[in-house]
Design a protein around this nucleic acid. Structure first.
Length: 773
DNA sequence: CAGTGAGCGAGCTTCCGCTTGACTT
């Protein structure tokens, strides 16, 4: 029997630590928080100093009873949860829930999982830090109060089942604000002038590119300039050469790993986390939910060996990085390979690639700067005062670039800027001009957020924690506030003026612009909810709200403030505002009056309906019912035009009768359809237009589908016409009472009898538990 | 899984952070 029970948060960590501690220590994991506020109601006694009402989370009942049993006989229970607010609270909840005698409890902390660090921790135990626990309780209670008081206001004023919270609502606001910036953005164009020169060196001609020091607003100005160049002479007026350097990025933390995996590997935020989890569980990397850029001394010394051996001493530069993150709690190390000398891992491709990324970033963080030489040459034009500038960059020493280079979010559209090498240029060198181009360039609206760039923004504001970035991204999408979507680009003409051989020519070229892939768009619901919250709860929707309360949590943690006092000061005015808003605020359906219907003379509105955004003609009165039409997926209440709404009401159309029954054309969730005898037939994409399709073609499509369906049927049975044996996408199946049952592969479906089918249904595997939405 | 859309009132929804599996096609 062991004398000691050690409890950590993660099972993978438990496994590692057990090896370091020896036989007298049993190491177990509690899997994070074991207790939380009761689920069914507020879970806070507001009248009683906001005292929280806790319960053991249902999925932790087993863990708790096991830990309770194991903790009874041991002499000492070591609580080794993380050294941050949440970790301290977990330790305290363990004491309370397991009913541990505080005399036999020792609280220990370590930031890195090495033998040294753990043995040191065991020699320096302490008690529970109740100030830190109270800071966590304040955080928890505040979030519950905000979430559970704001959400019901939305149910009453906008739509049921909506949600609001300190973190998610601000995340949505970032996306809504950005979208509005984009829609009010006016693109302007200017002309960028570039030239190709050549210089002769011992009879050898070398060409290089230069750009005019100024841009022109109009085509006329550009033409005027180009004409001035017809008979110009060019020479090098000035050459400046400057040394420059680039430094490596710090080791990965959760947010930077998510960003780089998104940019370099195209992973979504949640994909990155699940791949990293696998690597962590296999002991290949350190913990992946961290906000610390710190590397353990042991890690640094093995990195040092690795760099010296593989690249040489001149590539080594040991660096200590400091966290720049507001409110970083630094309970762990940075994300790095567990064993630096392991350059790659076996397993799925995703794991290999993510591991490689982590390995490179870790190594590069301890390597020397890259040294560059930047050259800028000014080229005089004899006929006018403007100058051309040719800039070039030469890598003198690659340093960390040998291993790794961090990507940027806003890679410029034409990545040809600067990175080129120039020929050797000297002052007074004469140059020959080959060509000059004046190219029309348009300004771009600010970019929409990707999952990863939203995480970056949230982190900068101190909103959310490493363990919650991925869940936040899914919450705002699951609630229907935000949509990850693709936007096709639009074609745009631009003008290129070319001066070559003393000839000015003009070309119109076409580019595709504004293509967006996997970007975050606010939905209509998202915008209406956001505007409502901003109007009535400015304080909470302020980007600084989290930073402000974090400061107060810190004061609680350092014992300078009482947690229930802090909550009270927040709650009193907040609760009043909730009550007054519930009472007085008008219902907000995002309604917008677009104009008057030319046919009926009634008003046309767009607003949020029970099933999403809709357009409406006329109002509900006793004798009159309005006409409705749903908005399409790519339309929004905010930007849809009057003409586009009229277009929506052209469907459904009646195109005539077939087999004495009306045939109508409509537009549904899955695109345009034909409806006949309450059956649906899809139109063919890019062939049939729902607004113009006629009866003959509709009948053709109906007959096509009927023919296909006939082929689908393997057998029907006279005993029960509702039971059908059909051929489907995944092979033969039995269709009965709107449910489908697979025919096992071994059986030849054509041989089945009615009774066989009934048996198949009876013996079908029980319906698996439903997937959560 | 395509159609709907008022208003009433039943009963329901909802937060953030800490951890993993257990699910589906």
């Amino acid at each position: 029997m062991e004398d000691n029970l050690v409890i950590v948060e993660s099972p993978a960590k438990a496994k590692t630590i057990e090896k370091f501690l020896g036989k007298q220590f049993l190491v177990k994991s509690c899997f994070g928080h074991i207790r939380d506020l009761v689920k069914k109601d507020l879970g806070i006694s507001v009248e009683d100093g906001f005292s929280p009402v806790y319960e053991v989370s249902p999925d932790k009942k087993k863990v708790v009873s096991e830990l309770k049993k194991l903790s009874k006989p041991v002499k000492t229970v070591w609580l080794a949860s993380d050294e941050d607010r949440e970790g301290e609270a977990i330790a305290w909840h363990l004491v309370e829930t397991l009913k541990l005698d505080e005399k036999k409890v020792k609280r220990i902390v370590f930031h890195e999982i090495t033998k040294d660090a753990i043995q040191r921790a065991v020699k320096n135990p302490r008690g529970i830090d109740y100030n830190l626990v109270n800071a966590q309780q304040a955080r928890r209670v505040l979030d519950r109060l905000v979430g559970f008081e704001l959400s019901p206001v939305l149910w009453k004023k906008i739509k049921p089942a909506l949600s609001a919270g300190r973190v998610q609502s601000v995340a949505v606001r970032l996306i809504v604000d950005r979208e509005r910036e984009i829609s009010s953005f006016k693109s302007t164009s200017s002309y960028r002038v570039t030239a190709i020169f050549s210089i002769s060196d011992n009879g050898k001609e070398t060409e290089f590119k230069a750009e005019l020091s100024q841009k022109f607003d109009t085509k006329e100005e550009t033409i005027k300039f180009l004409k001035k160049c017809v008979n110009a002479q060019y020479f090098v007026k000035d050459v400046i050469t400057k040394p420059a350097k680039k430094s490596p990025a710090p080791p990965f933390i959760t947010s930077t790993l998510q960003q780089e995996a998104s940019r370099k590997l195209g992973f979504s935020v949640s994909q990155t986390m699940s791949v990293a989890q696998k690597l962590y569980e296999a002991g290949k990397i350190t913990y992946m939910r961290t906000d610390s850029v710190n590397l353990s001394d042991l890690a640094i010394s093995t990195i040092k060996n690795e760099i010296e051996e593989k690249y040489g001493e001149q590539y080594l530069k040991i660096r200590k990085y400091k966290s720049k993150i507001k409110g970083a709690q630094e309970a762990h190390e940075a994300i790095r390979p567990s064993y630096i000398n392991k350059h790659s891992v076996d397993g799925p491709n995703t794991e290999k690639r993510l591991y490689e990324l982590i390995w490179k970033r870790t190594i590069a963080s301890q390597m020397s700067d890259a040294k560059l030489e930047k050259t800028s040459a000014t080229i005089d034009i004899s006929t006018t005062k403007e100058d051309f500038i040719a800039s070039g960059e030469v890598l003198k020493f690659d340093g960390f670039l040998k291993v790794y280079f961090e990507s940027k979010d806003d890679e410029t559209e034409n990545g040809e800027n600067g990175k080129t090498m120039l020929p050797i240029l000297n002052v007074n060198d004469k140059l020959t001009n080959i060509v000059i181009n004046g190219t029309q360039r348009f300004t771009h609206h600010p970019p929409r957020f990707t999952e990863a760039s939203l995480v970056k923004k949230l982190e900068e504001q101190g909103i959310g924690r490493p363990s919650t970035y991925a869940p936040i991204i899914s919450t705002v999408q699951n609630r229907g506030y935000v949509l990850k979507d693709v936007r096709e680009g639009v074609k745009r003409d631009y003008c290129v003026l070319t001066m070559a051989d003393k000839n000015l020519s003009e070309n119109i070229k076409t580019e595709t612009t504004g293509m967006e892939k996997a970007k975050l768009f606010p939905t209509d619901i998202g915008m209406v909810v956001n505007d409502f919250l901003v109007e009535h709860f400015k304080n909470i929707m302020n980007y600084n709200f989290t930073a402000k309360v974090e400061k107060q949590f810190d004061e609680i943690a350092s014992g300078k403030m009482k947690w229930n006092k802090m909550i009270e000061d927040f709650y009193n005015p907040f609760h009043k505002k909730v009550e007054s808003t519930t009472e007085t605020a008008t219902k907000n359906k995002g309604e917008r009056l677009l104009g008057v219907d030319p046919k009926s003379g009634k008003n046309i509105y767009v607003k949020i309906g029970r099933y999403g955004p809709l357009a409406q003609i006329g109002e509900m009165t006793d004798e009159d019912k309005p006409k409705f039409a749903g908005l399409r997926k790519d339309q929004s209440i905010e930007t849809i035009t009057f003409e586009e709404v009229l277009e929506l009401f052209k469907l459904p159309r009646n195109v005539g009768k077939y087999e004495e029954i009306d045939v109508t054309i409509g537009l549904g969730r899955f695109g345009p359809y034909i409806r006949h005898k309450s059956l649906f037939y899809s139109l063919v994409k890019d062939v049939d237009d729902p607004l113009t399709i006629e009866l003959d073609r509709a009948i053709e499509l109906i007959e096509d589908k009927r023919e296909k369906d006939r082929k689908k049927v393997i057998k029907i049975f006279e005993e029960d016409l509702e039971l059908k044996l059909l051929n489907g996408r995944w092979g033969p199946y039995v269709s009965f009472e709107k449910k489908n049952y697979r025919v096992p592969k071994k059986i030849d479906a054509a041989t089945l009898s009615y009774q066989d089918c009934l048996d198949l249904i009876k013996n079908a595997p029980p319906p698996k538990t439903k997937r959560r939405k």
